[in-house]
Amino acid sequence: MDIRIGITHGGRELSVEIDDEAAEDAAASLEGALSGDETVLWLNDRSGRRVGVPIDKLAYLELGPAGDRRIGFAAD
């Protein structure tokens, strides 16, 4: 599963790949962070790294399947 995170006042988005089984944990962690229980959203990626994003800097979070991302000009 691919997670894209937009950060306020940031020119780029953060992309994190997680295991499909960890997707529900990531959604639960986001809900807990947004409810005010936590100040940092922590995610574990596929290679075992931890990524932390301060909740007050979170612009958006997009969860979706890791798939074919096309870059450039492509015709369907």
Results as ranks from 00 to 15, higher is better:
P54A: 04
L30S: 03
L30M: 13
A27W: 13
D76S: 03
P54W: 02
A66E: 04
A33R: 08
A59R: 14
R69W: 00
G72N: 05
I3M: 11
A22L: 13
I7R: 13
I71D: 08
I5F: 07
S15W: 10
D19S: 15
D76Q: 05
K57T: 10
G36N: 10
R50I: 00
D25M: 11
R12S: 12
P65Y: 03
I3S: 08
P54Y: 05
P65L: 03
P65V: 01
V51C: 03
P54C: 02
G52I: 01
N44Q: 13
S47A: 05
E24L: 14
E17P: 04
G72L: 04
D2L: 12
A28S: 12
D37G: 12
G72R: 01
R50S: 05
R46P: 00
G67R: 08
D20K: 14
V40M: 06
E17L: 10
E13Y: 13
L43T: 09
E13L: 07
E21W: 12
G64I: 00
R4K: 15
D45H: 07
S29Y: 10
A26M: 13
D68I: 05
R49D: 10
A74H: 10
G11V: 07
R69N: 03
A59Y: 01
E38S: 10
E17D: 14
R12Y: 09
A66Q: 09
V40I: 09
R4E: 15
D37C: 10
D68E: 02
S15L: 15
R49A: 11
I18N: 10
A75Y: 02
G52S: 08
P65N: 01
G48Y: 07
A74P: 01
I18Q: 10
A75H: 00
I71H: 08
L14K: 15
A22Y: 12
R69Q: 06
A23T: 14
G52Q: 06
A27C: 09
E21Y: 13
D2T: 13
D37F: 07
L14I: 15
G32M: 10
R70C: 02
A66C: 01
L14E: 10
G48P: 03
W42Q: 07
S35D: 09
D76T: 04
R4S: 15
Y60E: 02
A28M: 11
